[in-house]
């Protein structure tokens, strides 16, 4: 299986009046029809990476990469117009809080239908039919009713399911999910993840799951990239996470309070300044076998 997306030497820099902030410092990785988890703490650059793939970094940020290859096309060489054709249709993104990513004054169903019509020529009735179908796929029991609601009328979990419907209706090949369940209650999280799981598997999509939750990512994804200070500090298969040797990853795992393994004192992570200077681990896999 070849990679759908290959990112090589990605940098994201912000130049302000008096300093240069390097959010992402030369990372390389690939995504095939598999699930990649990008884990890190705040400031690690994980969210920036997701946005950089789609060219959605706000001013004064600058994206630079040797190549961002998507099915043979280099995204860095595309014009804005061409990039817009890729966004949504081929690579989609779900963000953390549906309250902020859905337009509050447009009905939910209309937003999803719009997402469909942006990328497919179709009539309004066809789009509506497709929308209702999609709402059923994200296990919304009463699609007709939900079609006519406004975002603020939906609970967190419903809102996130609507987001998933909206982002998957154009049938993209890759989905980037940036902390999709962090704002949700624990029981709701489970349901939303199950829906994502099914859809991604059924459609044979590639998934980039960005999160701060190491345990969650390791149980949901196939491969994990751990980021620190803008670089990939370690990469491994999800099932091998507990065998990890890097002191940072080990430290993160150990500092989590655990229901099953209670400790008197939580383990404190001692940040070694050398971690920031280590070269980024190359996570490009030409032969992804899942």
């Amino acid at each position: 299986m070849t990679a759908l997306l290959t990112v090589e030497d990605l940098w994201v820099r912000f130049q302000t009046r008096n300093r240069l902030v390097e959010a992402v410092r030369g990372i390389s990785f690939s995504v095939g029809r598999e699930r990649i988890g990008i884990v890190g703490e705040s400031g690690s650059g994980k969210s920036m990476t997701g946005r950089a793939i789609l060219g959605l970094v706000q001013q004064p940020g600058i994206i630079q990469a040797k190549r961002i290859d998507f099915k043979g096309r280099d995204l860095t060489a595309l014009s804005n117009r061409e990039l817009r054709a890729i966004r949504g249709q081929h690579i989609s993104m779900i963000m953390q809080d549906p309250k902020y990513s859905l337009n509050p004054v447009i009905k939910v169903g209309d937003q999803i239908a719009e997402s469909f019509r942006l990328h497919h020529r179709s009539s309004r009735t066809d789009a509506k039919a497709k929308t209702l179908e999609m709402l059923k796929e994200v296990q919304i029991a009463d699609p007709e009713r939900v079609f006519n609601t406004y975002p603020h009328e939906l609970s967190g979990g419903m809102g996130q399911r609507v987001m998933i419907a909206m982002m998957l209706i154009p049938d993209p090949e890759i989905l980037i999910a940036d902390e999709p369940t962090s704002a949700l209650d624990v029981t709701v999280q489970k349901r939303v993840l199950e829906i994502m799981d099914k859809l991604v598997t059924d459609r044979g999509m590639g998934l980039i799951f960005i999160s701060h939750d190491l345990n969650l990512v390791s149980s949901f994804c196939d491969r994990i990239l751990i980021m620190y200070g803008g670089r990939i500090i370690e990469t491994c298969l999800a099932k091998d996470l507990h065998k990890t040797t890097h002191p940072y990853t080990r430290g993160l795992l150990n500092s989590l309070p655990s229901l099953q393994n209670p400790t008197e004192k939580l383990h404190i992570l001692n940040r070694d300044p050398r971690w920031k200077e280590e070269p980024s681990v190359n996570a490009i896999r030409e032969d992804t076998n899942v």
Partner: peptide, 26 residues
Amino acid sequence: LQTATTKTDYAAALISASYGFKREIV
């Protein structure tokens, strides 16, 4: 809590959900 010996269904559901997809990790 640690041994998940609870009386009500909701408590049990909450505990299991917090493991949720975390079941594989020990």
